[in-house]
């Protein structure tokens, strides 16, 4: 830890803690799951940056969506994202959540994930190597430092639009709105 780091710790311990204690809940489909184990085990060891996988969204602060997102899994992704405590960050892994990737013409997959939940960072590639995940995380740190990782704030302020998008593609959702919806009141 150099002197610069120490100064930052004293200036804003909460922000620093958010940077260096990213507890991750993974949502993996297809090839996404292949890239996660190397990154958290002995070869690359994500734990040295304080990044560990946790079992439930309640304990997490980072949501990594790895692989394509089908209609069925989107429902679970939204549910999981809403159950995470704020502040929370989302990173998508691979080309599929960005633009559909190799499933760009599938009737059953989501082409643009950021239409349904806010995504703070996207790591492109098919599939990106574990190094790319670490690059993505360092970018996320920069964003947290500059207060630009504000996906959860965007989700709150534009909740009506997000909810409308979600209901448009999924039909009726089983759970009540997380925040009050402005259009109806």
């Amino acid at each position: 830890m150099d002197r610069n780091q120490l100064k930052k710790w004293f200036q804003n311990p909460v922000k620093m803690a958010h940077k260096y204690s990213l507890h991750v809940v993974y949502f993996c489909t297809g090839c996404g799951i292949i890239e996660i184990p190397p990154s958290i085990t002995a070869r690359w060891d994500a734990e040295r940056f304080g990044i560990i996988p946790v079992a439930t969204p309640r304990q997490a602060s980072l949501f990594i969506i790895a692989g394509y997102v089908s209609l069925k899994t989107l429902r679970s992704i939204i549910r999981t994202y809403e159950q995470m405590p704020e502040p929370k960050f989302t990173v998508s892994l691979g080309s599929c959540p960005i633009n559909g990737g190799m499933y760009h013409d599938s009737y059953n997959t989501i082409k643009h994930l950021e239409k349904y939940i806010p995504v703070d960072g996207m790591i492109a590639g098919c599939m990106p190597r574990p190094e790319a995940i670490f690059v993505g995380v360092t970018h996320l740190w920069t964003l947290i430092d500059k207060d630009m990782a504000d996906g959860y704030k965007r989700y709150r302020s534009n909740y009506s639009a997000y909810r409308a998008n979600q209901e448009k593609i999924l039909g009726k959702l089983e759970w009540p709105p997380l925040f009050p919806i402005h259009g109806e009141e």
């Binding site: 909460v14 803690a17 204690s21 002995a42 309640r58 405590p85």
Partner: peptide, 24 residues
């Protein structure tokens, strides 16, 4: 396990982060 491992202070960092999160 032949890993580098987190800093020994890691639980303290976790606790600071957890205290600042809005839980259900």
């Amino acid at each position: 396990q032949w890993r580098y491992g987190p800093p020994v202070m890691q639980p303290l960092i976790d606790i600071i982060r957890l205290l600042s999160q809005k839980s259900a």
